[in-house]
Design a protein around this nucleic acid. Sequence first.
DNA 1: CTGGGGAAGGGGCCC
DNA 2: TGGGCCCCTTCCCCA
Length: 481
Amino acid sequence: MEISSHQFHLLQQLNEQRKQDLFCDCCILVEGKVFKAHRNVLFASSGYFKMLLSQGSKETSQPTTATFQAFSPDTFTVILDFVYSGKLSLTGQNVIEVMSAASYLQMTDVISVCKTFIKSSLDISEKEKDRYFSLSDKDVNSNGVERSCLYGADWRTENSPPHSHLNPDQGTCVMSGNAWSNFSYYPTSQRNSQQQQLAKHDQRQDSIKKTRHLGLQQSSDIPHYKSSKLEDRSSDPTSHISQSEEEVQIDTEIDSAHAGYQYGQGSDVMPRSLAVSQQEHESPHSSSKSKSSKADEQYGNMPSILGVMGSWAEDDLPRMRFKCPFCTHVVKRKADLKRHLRCHTGERPYPCEACGKRFSRLDHLSSHFRTIHQACKPICRKCKRHVTELTGQVVQEGTRRYRLCNECLAEAGIDSIRIDLEAEPQLEFPQEGDKDSRWHYSEDNRSDVEIVEDGSTDLVIQQVDDSEDEAEEQEVKPNIR
DNA sequence: CTGGGGAAGGGGCCC
DNA sequence: TGGGCCCCTTCCCCA
């Protein structure tokens, strides 16, 4: 007979012991803050600690001390609370760092939850986006409410109906049990159904991707994890590989990509700081060859170390590196990582007012707007010759604008038609803080532009003013407010 | 089918 | 930290 609550109570007791500093035999120093914990609990929860403690198991009489600077004390608090409670407190602000730390500590379940959290956040943002566009209501935006998620692996509810609730006022969702729909975490043995859901999700993304050639806008709005082999693999509905086998394959695949990082084979990429007293300040990844091979054998299917990494420059000064949790990319600056992450998350916060196309970066939007809608290039699109205000004019084709020289205009039969730029609404490029506001293509404003159709194409010709750059800046800012 | 050009998108880095 | 510029690669369209 099995008492389902036993595991929960046992962990609860261990957590109480941790809080009361009873029987704690391991100290973890994170950026100066000391955490007390139990070796056996850490061993059971983290591949990193498993490796660390197994290598130091000969000296069990002395307390183990591990030092980390690769993540913040707050992040480790979240991790440790999860270890001792099964509940992971994720927010939009901490999820990346928690995921990085979990990657560092080789806690696959936490990584999975973080990935699901990120993905679900994107789903929600997509829904908000849809709602926004459908309502055309600027206030629908997130309003900066921090959405957080409390993940709970609650054994007591293993057989109870799933429950989750979302508090829209606080933007907080609390989910527990084994059956959440979006933020769900399942033990490995229970993930098949979730994988099927992911497969459906990815199938949808594939179909969306295929529509790109049809000129549909949505492809740029839908996040897809193009660099995530995990996602690609899980998206294969024909796969008959069992979950556990699949995970091993995935991990092996990632390991091979990160081999240089994981066991310190690459001298230039090492954990930012790692000091372990029992290891004589030796990283578990840089142990002796025999140990390494043993570790390879024992932990070969564990995930690679992702997240914030550090390297040592030739002058022995630590040099920060930021490791993308989704791919092997490493950048020097946090801001660059943030920017890079958008290519994984699919976030495109910069919409073009003129055509609605969305961009992940403001400079890309600027470039797009200049080239597509402002006709900044003083070059005839047809004959490629340089044009001035005297020798050419701006032609509008839909929301596109480009320049044609007078000869090419005459050839096209659309010469001597000018547009009153004064009457045209000015486009104001989005300022900071506008990124969340949705620009709207104004049909009303559109009517302010004198449109001349030449039959086959929707062409509008505007007078070119190349006299000054300033004038060019003010020129042709169409349809946007 | 192929090559060229334009646009998009990603990274590095400066301000 | 964000904006912006430059450079490069990739993708797509078109002749």
